[in-house]
Amino acid sequence: MDLQLKDKVIIVTGGARGIGKGIALVLAKEGATVAIVSRTETENLKTLAEIEAAGGKGFQVVAELSNPEASQQAVDAVVAEFGRIDGLVNNAGENDGVGLQNGNYEKFMQSMHKNLVHYYMMAHYAVPHLIKTQGSIVNISSKTADTGQGGTSAYAASNGGRNALTREWAVELLSHNIRVNAVVVAECYTPLYERWIQTLDNPEEKLKEITSKIPLGNRMTTTEELGNTVAFLLSSVSSHTTGQLIYVDGGYVHLDRAIS
Rank of each mutant, 00 (worst) to 15 (best):
N67I: 14
F232K: 01
K132T: 12
G93M: 12
R17F: 00
K132A: 15
E41L: 12
G161V: 07
L200K: 11
V248T: 10
C188G: 08
Y155V: 06
G31A: 07
V89E: 13
V34I: 05
G15L: 04
I210H: 05
S66Q: 14
E94N: 11
E94V: 05
L5M: 03
H176G: 00
G56A: 13
Q72T: 01
D146L: 15
K6E: 02
A92F: 11
K6N: 03
N163T: 11
I51P: 12
L226I: 08
A80K: 08
V171Q: 10
H124M: 10
A145R: 07
L226H: 02
H176R: 12
G151F: 12
V37L: 14
T222F: 01
D201H: 08
T221K: 05
F232C: 04
I36T: 04
N115E: 09
E69K: 15
A186N: 10
N91W: 08
A154G: 10
Q73D: 13
L45G: 00
I11E: 00
I259E: 04
V171C: 00
S239M: 01
V180N: 04
G15K: 05
G18I: 02
G56S: 13
Y105N: 11
L234W: 02
L207Y: 06
G251E: 03
S236N: 12
G18C: 01
T166R: 08
V89I: 15
D146F: 14
S111P: 01
G99Y: 11
T33C: 13
K29R: 14
K8H: 06
L200W: 02
G103H: 04
A157K: 00
T242V: 03
N95F: 01
E41P: 05
S71M: 09
E69Q: 15
V117E: 11
K114S: 11
L100Y: 12
E187S: 14
E224K: 00
A126W: 00
T47A: 13
H124Y: 15
I51Y: 11
V253W: 07
N202Y: 04
V171E: 08
A164P: 04
K132S: 11
V12F: 04
G93W: 08
V9F: 01
M220A: 07
V12E: 03
G87C: 00
A92C: 12
A258Y: 04
V117L: 13
T42I: 15
D256E: 02
L207G: 09
K143A: 14
T242I: 04
G103I: 02
R84I: 09
A74K: 14
G14E: 07
R179C: 03
L130K: 06
A70S: 15
L226S: 07
G135Y: 05
V184E: 10
A49Q: 15
Q198P: 07
I197N: 10
A16K: 05
S175R: 09
V117D: 10
P191A: 02
V34F: 01
G161C: 09
E172I: 00
Q101T: 14
Y193A: 14
G20C: 03
G227S: 06
E50S: 13
E52N: 13
V98Q: 11
G150M: 08
E209M: 10
G99P: 13
E204C: 08
A157F: 09
T190V: 06
V37Y: 05
I197V: 13
Y247R: 08
K213A: 04
V26I: 01
Y189E: 11
L65W: 14
I131D: 05
P215H: 06
L174N: 10
H176Q: 15
A123W: 01
I178N: 06
K29F: 02
R167V: 13
H129A: 10
L130D: 06
